[in-house]
Design a binder for these strands. Structure first.
Lengths: 148, 148
DNA sequence: CTTAGTGCAAAACCTTTGCAACTCT
DNA sequence: AGAGTTGCAAAGGTTTTGCACTAAG
């Protein structure tokens, strides 16, 4: 997955955050595994294999910053830990999640239909809406066939 | 908020769960505060004031059961704990949440438009969809005026 | 140089679990 | 009577924090 490093570096500068090697490495982990929803522990595992021995605390602190800068999106899929993915703001399409209540598999689907609803809600509610998350819960094909 | 106790009692029987005084008290807490999104700790506080001294572990176990029976809905609004409210299944309209990123206020809005989308997704994705959660993130009126 | 970031270990937090005593059905 | 439930305390797992040390701008 490609990321606009110039734009990211700029976001760091705006907030006067330093673009340290550790932070770059963590960002690289998402460039390499942009398709997955990584937990802090998983990110820690990936960067550890790769090169440096980055502390878990640093991973947490970096994920926090990357979420704040809207580079990553923090997700809770109900498995007891937060999971991160490259933010919707950096993608052409919004996408949402289908979560299997049985095996916790997460499938994605694209969506452009919600913008209309978002505008309508914003007008009625006095909220300045900057993002939305839509999750569908159910049972995936595999679990349904197994269960029979 | 009114709840159909007969229906609830029946759901308990179907799964052979006992309808103990503790569970009734916890349910009552939601009848009394059905408008709020209660955390386990808050429920514990409410029932403790009220009468019995119910253990926190029991609260957690009961909330788990009530979610499983689809009487309550478990929510994560990003403040580090789960919050429960009377389930959409027991309401006439689905409702969703507007979450203020600044003060964590949660505002609700109703929605009936999503059923169409849900059907379309279900067909394409091989998922048996049983529920959906839609959250909008932004900044509420109060925080926007304060910030200026 | 100065301010922010790192690593480690300890602490904080929410949630779950083991177990003996207890109580609905 | 018997299976399920409770309360307590301890354990579990994730995330945060204090602090001395290090490094980026």
């Amino acid at each position: 997955m490609q990321m606009d490093m110039t734009a990211i570096r700029q976001k760091f500068q705006e907030k006067q955050y330093k673009f340290t090697p550790q932070r770059q490495t963590i960002l690289q982990a998402f460039a390499d595994h942009g398709d997955r929803h990584l937990s802090a522990e998983e990110v820690h595992g990936i960067v550890k294999q790769k090169t440096a021995d980055i502390g878990l605390a640093t991973v947490y602190r970096t994920l926090e910053i990357l979420s704040e800068l809207d580079i990553l999106q923090k997700n809770d899929f109900g498995d007891g830990r937060n999971r991160y993915e490259v933010s919707a703001a950096n993608m052409t399409h919004h996408h949402h999640h289908l979560i299997c209540l049985s095996c916790h598999a997460v499938k994605e689907f694209e969506d452009d239909l919600l913008e209309t609803l978002e505008c309508a809600i914003a007008k009625k509610s006095d909220f300045l809406i900057v993002d939305h998350h839509l999750k569908f819960y159910g049972y995936c094909q595999d679990c349904r066939t197994k269960h029979e």
